[in-house]
Design a protein around this nucleic acid. Structure first.
Lengths: 357, 357
DNA sequence: GTGAAAGCGCTAACAT
DNA sequence: ATGTTAGCGCTTTCAC
């Protein structure tokens, strides 16, 4: 029971304009079959009344909400804001609004949100799932027939649309680069096991090692979680271990930064003693003070494309055509900065900018 | 005309359960006046049918959408992700979902979104407005009687609820700190003029200068926009000007980081030659490589409190009680790090961590 | 304890 | 060109 001025409806307009409210609806929606005069009058009155069409009612009738859900682990993780921005942009271009769903890296919250989105009858869902778990979630039980697009992280072998980069290739690029620079004992620092992206990046790492004739060493692989602290700890262990690596590939930038801190704290130099390559190219990585070599994902573009893909999927479903699923795999890009080049002017130069004196 | 399995409704359940659909509604909503037996049966069937209540229909009936709009300039600006996270958390605790509205620092998009949110009949709006402009927007024409809570940035003298920090005091703290460290010519670098927060931070700056008996110098004030680049340019100009400052208060951290880069590029040392203090305490500021002294805002908490405030406001409106407006002004906190301490062990120590050797 | 029916605001047949 | 009416899925009187 809202007090204040209750919102005006088409009936209010109809009454004043002396027409049926069907006519008002037609006029407002620019349907044909309305005399110019009445149309103008209706529009005029609507304006005066500050009429605001009720999207809820419209949605009930049309079965379309023009809303999509964006399900991500954590908006405050530096990887996601740009992605989210891309999604928002793409979505709003297509006339959709975005419900922000932060799962907090929590599988049950992910499922909760999926149910919520179903109840809200969103037109579609863009999700960056916590992969391992998601395998089961995506057995269609939860999402039903709502179009879904995976973003940045997709279950292996899914038939649904997605926008990702080639993570395996990314891992390969990173590791090859290190090997080509002459580093020989390249370690792998990763977040939780069982994550599809982590696994694939590791796969690329392995492939590069094998291809370049380096020796794979189990003790050079270190898993933890996705936070800086985890990278810090991993690197600390690696360095103080019996066979200290001379390069570390961290499968995300936050980890990589933690790695750098641990290395420096140990009194070692980056990249002279230990080189570091990250993954994602978060904004932090580009800062002169960090200047991290990394594998870039076009985050904003990925978001935008996911939104467009979803919009297409919705249209297709609406039109009765089946959910043909575009699966977009973008090329990762190696961005060479200062943490991976040994004995070059570049590395000295860059390291130099960090110095206060 | 959705194909596939059309969603089940209470009628479907009613049919199978051999009761009227009113009864189903009651059972589902746990209303009293339903025999235990039927209730269980209904629930059972609902479950089997994978029934998912239609929030749209419910919303139409109840005039409540359990959705709020979060209107911010740009989620990819490092200040906002944490704020958004807080909002999302607070909102979902209270049973609300969050529509993410990125205005892209664009006044007309801000207004567009406000209209959109009105059409969607959100239960309330949390907004971090682009203040100067917003003065007009908030003449209630656009938002009507939808509860609004301002976040981080509120129009001067508004009677609506808000959650902000004391920006004037923040500016004062930052500047005093610099003055107390013995710096004498403290410059002010700010984003666009006419922003309430910028103005207030400047006011604090002025107050501190006057109070500490320093001389205010017009040529030490430099306005631009909110990006790092702008801080960089401002500092470059200040430094090469006739009276180079020995300290710079930048009213946000991104600006401050730009300032630092300009100073270093000029061959000057931070903080020995030029001290820098920022504002906001974005995650970047805490990194050892930057280690920026700054004024902290409890971003996540602010978001959470805004969500709670809004929830309260909605409840109040719903209950017919007027929109009593809690206005929360939090204390800013000076976080002293390495960019503002001259000639102390602390500063040398901190600067030292930056060195690769 | 349960059913019948009205109605939330809108759109879309189907009349006229 | 416009009016009448049904109905989207649900909640909620009001009867029985």
């Amino acid at each position: 029971m809202r007090p204040a001025v209750d919102k005006k409806t088409i009936k209010d307009i109809a009454e004043i304009a002396n027409v049926s409210y069907a006519t008002v609806s037609r006029a407002l929606n620019d349907k044909y079959g309305v005399k110019e005069g009445t149309k103008r009058r209706v529009l005029e009155i609507a304006n005066q009344l500050q009429y605001s069409p009720n999207a809820i009612a419209r949605g009930l009738k049309s079965n379309r909400t023009y809303t999509i859900g964006l399900v991500i682990p954590d908006i405050s993780n530096p990887f996601f804001p740009e992605v989210a921005r891309g999604v928002e942009e793409g979505a709003s271009e297509q006339g959709y609004s975005v419900l922000l769903c932060n799962t907090n890296w929590n599988v049950s919250r992910e499922e909760q949100y999926l149910n919520l989105l179903a109840e809200r009858r969103v037109d579609g869902i863009i999700i960056s799932p916590m992969s391992a778990s998601s395998q089961s979630l995506w057995q269609d039980e939860v999402v039903g027939d709502v179009p879904v697009v995976f973003l940045a992280n997709a279950p292996m072998g899914t038939s649904r649309p997605y926008v990702i980069i080639d993570n395996t290739r990314g891992g390969y690029l990173a590791t090859s680069h290190l090997l080509l620079q002459g580093y020989e004992r390249v370690a792998f620092v990763g977040a939780q096991e069982g994550s599809v992206t982590v696994d694939q990046r590791f796969e690329g790492y392995r492939a590069a090692i094998d291809e370049r004739g380096a020796r794979f060493d189990d003790s050079l692989v270190c898993l933890g979680d996705f936070r800086e602290q985890s990278g810090y700890e991993a690197a600390r262990d690696l360095i103080s271990g019996r066979n200290c690596p001379d390069a570390i590939f961290a499968e995300n930038d936050l980890l990589a930064i933690g790695v750098i801190h641990a290395v420096r704290e140990r009194g070692l130099r980056v990249p002279e003693d230990v080189a570091v390559v990250g993954f994602d190219d978060i904004p932090l990585a580009a800062f002169p003070e960090i200047h991290l070599t990394t594998i870039a994902q076009p985050k904003e573009e990925m978001g935008r494309r996911a939104a467009r893909l979803l919009s297409d999927a919705v249209d297709r479903v609406e039109a009765g055509r089946g959910p043909a699923s575009a699966q977009v795999m973008l090329e990762p890009e190696l961005v060479v900065r200062g943490t991976s080049m040994r004995n070059t002017d570049e590395s000295r130069l860059r390291a130099g900018t960090t110095l206060p004196d």
